[in-house]
Every structure is written in C-alpha cells, then in structure tokens.
C-alpha cells in the first residue's frame, strides 16, 4: 500500500473515501470498516462486510490521525465504516478555532 501524500483511497466495505495528508513513518495498512482500503480508481468487491469493531463511521471533512505512525488522512466522503491503521483505530483531530484571516 503506497500511502504517499495526496493519494486517494476508498473503503472496500462502505462509501468512505480519504485523501492522505501525511504518510506513516513505516509501511502500514490503512483500513476502513476493518478491511484494507482500495486505491481510488479500483473497483469495490461486493462480498466484504464492515467489521462490528470498526463500524463507528467516518465524518466528511474531518482529519484522522494515528499518533504512533504519524499518519494523517482527510475524509473526503463519509461512510459507515471507521478508519484504522494496522488495526489501531484512527482518532479524529480536534476542530481548530482559528479566526478567518483572508
């Protein structure tokens, strides 16, 4: 899985799509709904299902991080599966309260 910045991924089991903001420090598997995510251009296979352990959902426009590997991904399309890296659930980055400056 080539998790390079700007690369786009989609869930194998729900509508979730993400774009990679910051790559992991070492090769890792980015998952959604418990299944490895697919390259944006590839086709979904119908038979996989969301794992109940990874079913909290993803939210549009939120940034998700894995502190351990330094990975950050932006959710560009929401879905029912939740994101994880090598099985570790990603955490949602807190909303920033910055005033508009331009």
């Amino acid at each position: 899985m080539d998790l390079k910045p700007g690369s786009r991924w989609k869930s194998a089991v729900c509508d979730t799509e993400v774009v990679l903001v910051r790559p992991p420090s070492a090769p890792a598997s980015l998952e959604c709904g418990g299944q490895p995510m697919l390259a944006h251009a590839s086709q979904r296979v119908a038979d996989a299902a969301i794992s109940p352990d990874h079913a909290a959902g993803s939210l549009l426009g939120k940034r998700y991080v894995d502190e351990e590997a330094g990975l950050e991904a932006l959710c560009s399309k929401p879905g029912a599966g939740s994101l994880s890296l090598d099985g570790r659930p990603l955490t949602m980055k807190e909303a920033k309260k910055l005033p508009a400056s331009d």
């Binding site: 549009l60 940034r63 920033k96």
Partner: peptide
C-alpha cells in the same frame, strides 16, 4: 504547489463550518 495551498486550507479552516448567512 497544490500541496502547499491545500495544507494551508485544511489546517486553518474547518470544512463547511460557516453559518448559512456568512459572506466574505
């Protein structure tokens, strides 16, 4: 480059966080 501008936007602005009546 795209990565510079996109990084600026997503790190300083919360997606669709404006109220309906906001105008710049």
């Amino acid at each position: 480059r795209h990565r510079h501008l996109a990084s600026y936007v997503i790190s300083t602005v919360e997606f669709m966080d404006a109220d309906d009546d906001e105008a710049a």
